[in-house]
Write a protein that binds this DNA or RNA. Structure first.
Length: 567
RNA sequence: UGCUCCGUGGUGUAAUUGGCAACACGUCUGACUCUGGAUCAGAAAAGUCGAGGUUCGAGCCCUCGCGGAGCAACCA
């Protein structure tokens, strides 16, 4: 750790999070030889969601910023809940977010041997004992947060006896639940976690990495701090709910360590988003019950879901950066997340024409057999993205709600007698329209165009208020478009009584649109390609898309002041 | 009636560690615009949960309240 990095970072940013301040202080004080080493420790029991992104950005981000390293460590101490399926997805999502653990992919299960030895050592030192009581008795003896616990009758069992039993537990001699290993700390501690916590339990299921080698498995508390210690972690960053575990973390590390080095646990606030549910268990239920299409359903807060929705890693990192790290239990506004994607995509997404709800416009004075290619800027924010040619002819589709038979005040779009510009082409005037007498649906709009108003060479001096996007009817590519809205219509779907989050599922969270008309250049777009459909929003190609059967997802709409005026 | 943590515009965060409460999102104006987008300019919005105390001076330190969260899994 060089002073340069410290100095440089101090000057570059006006304020840093309290965690970063701790890190800077530790580095300055030369703690742990002045190095920083973090870890990201997911349990492989589900897919990563945006809450994990917050942790990932901190763990990898701090290491990166201060010249340190960050390990990936799978916290796989409970074989009954964990599956290999999740490991690959977790790795993919971290890489996608833009971070890399290099060759430091570790597993808590790598340390089962060392952990077992440490447990034996504690037993020998009289700091751990085997308890033969069933779970409910142990639980009752723990007391409550307001009443101290009472000691187990097995607490004073000779170390030799505990040792013998612990070995036999691991050999598979005893049933699950019949015995546990407990640390001998303090049954009257005001901190429940210090009341002789269980550190090992018997589990006979096969483990995804160690198979049937072990019959006893360490609890989270008995694995985490020690794993940090084994890996040389200096800053062990985790969420607020582990705050009360810290004394136990420290107790275990203190009894394990043989030198000056020690990892430090620091807690920060978890990411909460309104209208969103972050619980892995409940997200799994949504998947299993078919309430969503899968873990990567574009309405899910999972990283794979957001990716499929069209979110960029940059936008997620930016969002995480905007919300910061504190100790306040904050509920963040989804609109900030949406702002972050818009901000990113605005600079990078090519503009294209797509008509979601087509209405045919016939330009009666335009030659029937003529086709012109008009040149259109791909991105006014970035001229280096160039231009493209878009075919124009006498029949085009416009958006159905861009025409009104009886327009209200301040409607700048097409209406009988009104003039608008077809972006990149000509100004047209609505002369008449065809309406189905029975259904009342407008079937066609008949317009005339003014040849003198061609974009780029308009010498007519005409000014119109409205500019519409359009697609040539003879060249359009057909597509399905999926419009997404928030999955829940309650601000805090998971925070209500019982598990009735299901009743807050938004029935309109997915709108399937078929027969949408897109400009021909979109026919060759690949999954995850991102575009701005001009005047509508940002869209990306879905995995379900095939040549000839394009499928697009709406990532997020554009800000729409007109919609707001009319709400 | 235990322990731990947290209370700053609607939301999320700042405040050079005791010195004029700032920024972003959102909201609302106006300008510009061949996207009712973007951009630009501006406005409204908290006097920092409350009451005391220390101090020339408190969002920051102290005391007592009030409110919220976490902790009683052989989960992580």
């Amino acid at each position: 750790m060089s002073d340069d990095i410290l100095k440089e970072n101090e000057e570059s940013k006006p304020s840093v999070s309290f965690i970063e301040q701790f890190i800077i202080e530790d580095l300055k004080a030369g703690k742990n030889s002045g190095r920083i080493h973090t870890r990201f420790p997911p349990e492989p029991n589900g897919y990563l969601h945006i809450g994990h992104a917050k942790a990932i950005c901190l763990d990898f981000g701090m290491a990166q910023k201060y010249g340190g390293k960050c390990n990936l460590r799978f916290d796989d101490t409970n074989p009954v809940k964990e599956e290999v399926e999740y490991i690959d997805s977790i790795k993919e999502d971290i890489h996608w977010l833009g971070f890399d653990w290099e060759d430091r992919e570790f597993y808590a299960s790598d340390y089962f041997g060392k952990l077992f030895e440490f447990a034996i050592d504690l037993i020998k030192r009289g700091l751990a004992y085997v308890d033969d009581q069933p779970a409910d008795v142990i639980s009752a003896q723990k007391g409550t947060p307001t009443r101290p616990g009472t000691e187990s009758p097995f607490r004073r069992r000779p170390a030799e006896e505990s040792l013998n039993l612990f070995y036999r537990m691991n050999e598979g001699e005893f049933e699950e639940g019949s015995r546990v290993l407990r640390a001998k700390i303090d049954m009257t501690s005001p901190n429940m976690h210090m009341r002789d916590p269980i550190i090992y339990r018997i589990i006979k299921s096969s483990h995804h990495r160690t198979g049937s080698k072990w019959n006893v498995y360490p609890m989270y508390d008995f694995a985490h701090g020690q794993s940090d210690y084994f890996e040389g972690i200096t800053h062990s960053l985790c969420t607020l709910e582990f705050e009360v575990h810290r004394p136990l973390y420290d107790w275990l590390v203190d009894h394990l360590k043989t030198d000056d080095y020690r990892p430090r646990q620091i807690e920060f606030n978890r990411l909460n988003l309104n209208y969103t549910m972050m619980s892995k268990r409940k997200l799994l239920e949504l998947v299993q019950e078919g309430k969503v299409g899968g873990w990567d359903d574009p309405r899910m807060p999972t990283l794979c879901g957001l990716r499929r929705r069209g979110y960029t890693p940059e936008s997620i990192r930016r969002f995480v950066d905007l919300i910061g790290y504190t100790k306040v239990e904050a509920i963040n506004d989804v609109s900030l997340l949406e702002h972050a994607v818009r901000e990113d995509l605005n600079l990078r997404a090519p503009r294209v024409f797509g008509v979601l709800d087509p209405l045919k416009v016939i330009i009666t004075n335009y030659p029937h057999d003529k086709v012109e290619n008009v040149e259109i800027l791909n991105n006014p924010e970035d001229e280096s993205m160039g231009t493209r040619m878009v075919p124009f002819c006498n029949e085009v589709f416009i958006e159905r709600d861009d025409f009104m038979e009886n327009p209200p005040h301040k409607f700048f779009r097409l209406a009988p007698g009104a003039e608008v510009r077809l972006k990149g082409a000509y100004i047209i005037k609505c002369e008449s329209f065809k309406k189905n007498e029975i259904t009342g649906i407008i079937e066609e709009v008949h317009c005339t165009y003014d040849p003198a108003t061609r974009s780029g060479g308009d010498a007519s001096g005409k000014k119109v208020k409205g500019t519409l996007h359009w697609v040539s009817a003879r060249h359009a590519v057909d597509a399905e478009v999926r419009l997404y809205d928030r999955l829940f219509d309650h601000e805090d779907p998971a925070g209500q009584k019982d598990d009735d989050y299901r009743s807050f599922l938004n029935p309109d969270s997915l709108k399937l649109l078929k027969g949408c008309k897109l400009e021909p250049s979109l026919g060759s777009a690949k999954p995850l390609d991102k575009f701005q459909f001009q005047r509508l929003g940002y869209f990306c190609v879905d995995y379900d898309s095939k040549p000839g059967q394009m499928v697009f997802n709406r990532t997020v709409g554009l800000k729409d002041t007109w919609a707001k005026i009319n709400k």
